[in-house]
Design a protein around this nucleic acid. Structure first.
Lengths: 337, 337
DNA sequence: GCGCTGATGGAATACGTTTACCAAACTTTC
DNA sequence: GAAAGTTTGGTAAACGTATTCCATCAGCGC
């Protein structure tokens, strides 16, 4: 059972191998007549090009790898989905690289482009998926790679993100505007630039309003529901309790709301809660969650556009693309009692 | 800048190409001494095998494609994540194929194994990602493929699923046990076997309890939040309203709960609600959601195990693997008023 | 020393495609 | 009808690897 390759196709269509190849993968270098003839023949004998063979020749796989600490996180996954959509429009397939925050897995996925399983990388981690010292120059040629949502601070790698600091400030300001003075935060992983920046923004807002920072109001954590529960419990045990909590992700807010409810606190009556991300469940929370929306669709699309440019060795006009966020006021925030 | 291939590696390590290749990709066909020597050399000169070249030779890519109608759905995504984890343990990478229920995209992703971009397929759709008439024999050799969660009813393709009919019956029975007689359902896509089976189970439970089926209590829909909202509104407008709603997915239940709340209904006081899937948010709903848990981790792991067997041309002992579901009673169901 | 086993070397082939090269044929334009 | 341009054919090389074939060699038990 010999497989049908391009030689068989060429023979069947009555053209040369060269022409057959041109007709399949470079349709405009061939006359319309032959193109259609070849394509019809391909359909008839059931020819499908072997991308491995082609890839070996052209050094392209048509895959991009998305490296992400926790693909299960709703915000992260929204971004992946958006990337997948954009990728397929660009003719790429996406490989999923869920690292569970393990360095070993980050490196393994980062290797996929060196081993020619992928043409490029989009990563959502706060560290590069290569063995490079943070400040250092790379001692190898950097593959096509874009940095999304977490700014690793390299100016040789394009960044696609929102302005987390400003967003953090605005969220805090919203609470201040409502009259809150005792505002706690539950952060994400303090290694991540996103958390660091949002925290900066929070502090800036407090300072501008002349509100003293209280260390016990800053609960450092992880971007997950369980963290929201735990940190909220800690906050409720404080002698001087906050009247508002700024959760650095909507998942944290889920845990926070749930814990508040169990403890008999009314939201926003007894406690205002604001989230971050605007995941698609946010408006279905009880109460519907005030949050800072990140434009996931746009983030995904932009990442893929930039990556495609990099892969095709085109100029990337802007290395730091800052996309707009938006404060979405729903019903989980209100005036303090 | 010549790339370093296996020739260079062999030369550097002082062995033949054959031995170098054996040491890298078939470690037990070579003595420990040489194996370590070669691997050390590989590390030193930074050799990484080109999987394209290897793949071309071996006809293996190391990728599997997961084809799924809506990867954003929390249940679906849980399964993908589990597959990804299992895949990486088996040495595979996973390609993400979100079809948005478009036939064209299903076929495109199904083609990935013919074009040798993937070695196998796991699909969550109710139709095969190939052009085959439903009842027909395939006129080509079926690639390694496993059918997950939606039984397409082919005995030449392994199925990994729960028993949806039984699960549907048990969920309904739970409501009956609580004393409900007016039980509505909001289904998923009525093309899907999962919805068809759950519906069968629902009807069986009613019948066994001697409760008459009411057509207006059966709201056909989609597995999404918006459907939950819309169908719940319809149900609330009925002259004779149900006292309990069985939502065929937790996402539907989110929409349902939200609409009930807006309409001033207490859950479970005025209306009991039960979901399906036990997505990780289910227990954080208000009230925490009674639901039927699907073992997503196990589903993902099992799919990958079976697929790996298929890819390695090993015997698959069982073509229909039915995994256990579990009714999880939380606080969204109770006795009718 | 003999025969046996297991490890290795050297050379060559195949996987399926793209593309460069050059020549030939065909089409359009003036 | 000639010149210029476009399309095609034929051939061959290249991409990087695994693997086969056979020969060789080292080590080992007897």
């Amino acid at each position: 059972m010999s497989t049908i390759g391009i030689k068989e196709l060429a023979e069947f269509a009555g053209v040369s191998v060269a022409t057959a190849s041109r007709a399949i993968s470079n349709p405009n270098r061939v006359s319309k007549v032959t193109r259609e003839k070849v394509q019809a023949a391909a359909k008839e004998i059931g020819y499908t090009p072997n991308r491995l063979g082609a890839g070996l020749r052209t050094s392209k796989t048509g895959n991009v790898i998305v490296i992400i600490p926790d693909a299960g996180d709703t915000f992260n996954f929204g971004a992946i989905k958006a990337i997948e959509k954009a990728a397929s429009e660009h003719g790429f397939s996406v490989l999923l690289g869920d690292t569970q925050n393990l360095r070993e897995r980050e490196l393994a996925y980062g290797d996929l482009v060196r081993t020619r399983q992928a043409d490029g990388i989009i990563f959502f981690s706060y560290r590069l998926p290569f063995d490079i010292e943070p400040g250092q120059e790379a001692d190898f040629e950097m593959p096509p790679i874009v940095n999304s949502c977490e700014d690793v601070g390299r100016n040789d790698i394009p960044l696609v993100s929102i302005n987390n600091e400003l967003a953090g400030e605005e969220a805090t300001q919203h609470l201040i505007d409502l009259g809150h003075e005792n505002i706690a935060v539950i952060t994400g992983d303090s290694n991540t630039p996103s958390t660091q920046d949002r925290l900066k923004g929070y502090l800036t807002a407090l300072k501008k309003a002349g509100i003293r920072k209280r260390q016990e109001f800053i609960q450092e954590g992880q971007y997950c529901i369980e963290q929201g529960e735990e940190s909220t419990k800690s906050l409720l045990q404080l002698k001087q309790r906050p009247s508002a909590i700024f959760c650095f992700s909507d998942e944290i807010a889920i845990g926070c709301l749930s814990t508040l409810k169990s403890a008999g606190f009314e939201v926003p009556g007894d406690m205002s809660v604001i989230g971050f991300d605007d995941i698609r469940f946010a408006k279905y929370f009880y109460p519907p969650l005030t949050t800072v929306a990140q434009p996931v669709e746009l983030i995904g699309k932009t990442c893929m556009q930039v990556l495609a440019k990099l892969i095709n060795k085109q100029e990337v006009p802007e290395m730091r693309i800052i996309l707009p966020h938006q404060l979405i006021v729903r019903e989980s925030t209100g005036k303090p009692r």
